[in-house]
């Protein structure tokens, strides 16, 4: 069943379209930056944007910081919201279940497909923005005079190897964050026969969480908001790596995955399939 889900993912034009659109925004920003040569001053604008003009190898980090707050969760919500509700709408859910595929297997395959989609989306964004960054901004060798040194947010130079390791860790962290959020959408997808409805409900959670984060009065629940530690992957680029928020973020997302995947399981296993 997992193989079938992955094949469905690969054969779906919508999947590739959404990943393509995710790559478009960072590419556009990169072109504008390189044409105008007007980077935001350090400490303002998107994370890493001030640094990329000096070293294109940092551009994937800047690109991920751009798509993470809205566009990446949007793509994840659409994909995960479609998981069960979309099958119900096309009438294929009942035929999978009478094939028979046990209901928990359907759900696990959907979660795996969600994780694969997220990895794919983040990786493609990272790779395309790396290429774009290197082409448009160079490796920084010209400016600094030494080969490929990137500067960490703490001002210490990172070797290319170190940068790659930290980038991989950041990508892993972002994937976990997105799967946590996707579990919420997956749960909504088992509640409804409308894929759009499930995706919008998940986005409503995202927006509500983002609003609460900025609200002083919500300080007590802030550590438990799904979006709270999303940007903590930036801490991988500090020297030394600032682990505190990263650990908390991973724990929180694991909690969300267990909670909402469990809820999806409980609901789907006992549900009457009338679609």
């Amino acid at each position: 069943m997992i193989g079938v889900e992955l094949r469905k993912l690969a054969l779906r034009p919508r999947v590739w379209l959404s990943i393509g659109l995710l790559c478009l925004l960072p590419a556009l920003v990169a072109v504008l930056l390189s044409v105008s040569d007007l980077a935001p001053p350090p400490g303002q604008g998107g994370a890493f944007l001030s640094a990329v003009l000096r070293n294109g190898a940092l551009y994937p980090a800047a690109a991920l910081a751009m798509v993470l707050p809205v566009f990446l969760p949007l793509a994840v919500a659409v994909f995960a919201g479609d998981a069960i509700a979309g099958e119900a709408a096309t009438g294929t859910l009942r035929y999978l279940l009478v094939r028979p595929v046990a209901r928990p297997r359907v759900l696990v395959a959907k979660l795996v497909a969600l994780a694969v989609f997220t990895v794919l989306a983040v990786l493609v964004v990272a790779v395309t923005s790396l290429v774009v960054g290197l082409v448009l901004f160079g490796t920084g060798a010209e400016a600094v005079g030494q080969a490929s040194a990137a500067t960490s947010l703490s001002g210490i130079d990172l070797s290319p190897g170190e940068l790659a390791v930290r980038m991989a860790a950041a990508i892993g962290y972002i994937v976990v964050s997105m799967v946590g959020f996707g579990s919420i959408a997956l749960f909504f997808s088992t509640l409804s026969d409308s894929a759009i409805g499930a995706a919008l409900a998940a986005l409503a959670v995202l927006i509500a969480s983002s609003i609460m984060e900025t609200l002083q009065a919500a300080a007590a629940i802030k550590p438990y908001l799904p979006t709270n530690y999303w940007l903590s992957w930036i801490d991988f680029f500090r020297d030394p790596v600032f682990w505190d928020n990263i650990d908390k973020g991973l724990l929180l997302q694991a909690g969300y995955i267990v909670l909402f995947f469990g809820a999806a399981w409980a609901n789907f296993a006992s549900k009457d399939i009338t679609s």
Partner: peptide
């Protein structure tokens, strides 16, 4: 049950292959 169900963006053959692969 209540009309056929298929993935609309795939061919009929591909649809049957999917359903075939999904079950025991």
């Amino acid at each position: 049950v209540e009309g056929p169900g298929a993935y609309p963006h795939l061919s009929g053959r591909r649809n049957l292959a999917m359903f075939d692969a999904a079950g025991p």
